[in-house]
Design a binder for these strands. Structure first.
Lengths: 197, 197
DNA sequence: AGGAACTTGCACACAACTGTGCAAGTTATG
DNA sequence: CATAACTTGCACAGTTGTGTGCAAGTTCCT
């Protein structure tokens, strides 16, 4: 009844598939199974030994990604909401530049509810910080909270996709800017985080 | 030799196809031909009477969109670069909320060079305004110009996708914010544009 | 070494989508 | 109204991607 523990070799291949899949999806959101398998050094057929099909593989990728993010985001602290936002951006950046496909799936409506629930905690944190900042009057309040939240999320995503110079700093400041914080002030906030998280 | 002018009816259908295509691509960047045709009230087969294939249809959509944009953007004026940026955003919004798929194609590397060349003038305008603003010190200068330009472009795109309340105003202010302009100042700039373009 | 676990390479069936041919129908327009 | 222009519906071939079955390997593990 108990499905016995998998062979060491097989576990490694499974990981390779998740890695390859993430890399492939990063380039093309609907990369065919065979290129993913090839990138993992396996045959297309072998994939079905690990996952029931493409969908299950993608779900696994998403779930592992979500776990990474949750781990990277870390516990909630009692700090200035702007700092909290900047920290979130930085943490996401550190966690994974390769998280981009996940985020893209999460935002572009589509894909399974898997992604939505996986990203839910992070999105909640964003909204909390934005709400606090709005109360403190440190972000623009001339548009409704939810819209602003979405814009901030997309801004974070934009940074991941642009992958430029000063990437990590942009990951912190750009979402702030999207919230209406001036560039100078945003840079200042990022500086207070400095070497820290 | 001369291909005779098309029947009035046929011209209308052609337009309908372009409209339907834009709408369909907006939802799904690779919507199948038959749903486009259906949305235009035509049969899939009829499409091949107007275009040699899917690619040519998409190209036609892109080209018409580019023309609209160019028309909407209007002539270059001698004005504050921030105002220029805000005006660009507003103009793009007015021109077409439905331009989103084009922009998405233009940014996400892919698709034909058609899109790239079509959008080139607009992108040049953005860079010019940003350069001037940088010199005037009204946008953040802590990251390189090209990266900032891309972020601003994506910000404009984000607004189109979010389609929220206060959409038109966001279309003007949000790209400014992405450039590091504070929310308050951005709103101010937008206000000076007011009823005007 | 020997058996189980895993992979491979083929074969095939199936689905979605594109592009084409052709006969029969509908509609604009001179 | 009569003809040319346009559309439709169907059939068909070609492509790409998925999921499955099975026999013959290879690799781990005891």
């Amino acid at each position: 009844m108990t499905p016995r523990t998998p062979r060491a070799d097989s576990a490694r291949n499974r990981e390779a598939l998740l890695d390859a899949g993430l890399r492939a999806l990063r380039r093309d959101l609907d990369a065919p199974l065979d290129v993913i398998a090839a990138e993992a050094g396996l045959s297309r057929r072998a994939v079905y030994g690990h996952f029931s099909g493409r969908d299950e593989l993608v779900d696994a990728i998403v779930e592992r990604g979500a776990a990474r993010i949750a781990a990277a985001v870390g516990p909630e602290r009692d700090e200035d909401p702007l700092v909290a936002l900047a920290r979130l951006g930085g943490a996401l950046w550190d966690a994974v530049a390769d998280v981009a496909p996940l985020a893209r799936m999460a935002l572009s409506s589509g894909r399974t509810p898997t992604v939505a629930t996986a990203m839910a905690p992070v999105r909640a944190r964003v909204r909390a910080a934005l709400g606090a900042a709005a109360e403190a009057g440190t972000v623009r309040t001339d548009i409704d909270a939810e819209t602003l939240a979405v814009l901030v999320e997309r801004a974070a995503l934009d940074v991941l996709e642009v992958a430029p110079s000063h990437a990590r700093m942009l990951a912190m400041t750009h979402p702030l800017c999207a919230a209406g914080v001036g560039g100078a002030r945003a840079a200042e906030v990022a500086r207070t985080l400095g070497a820290d998280a």
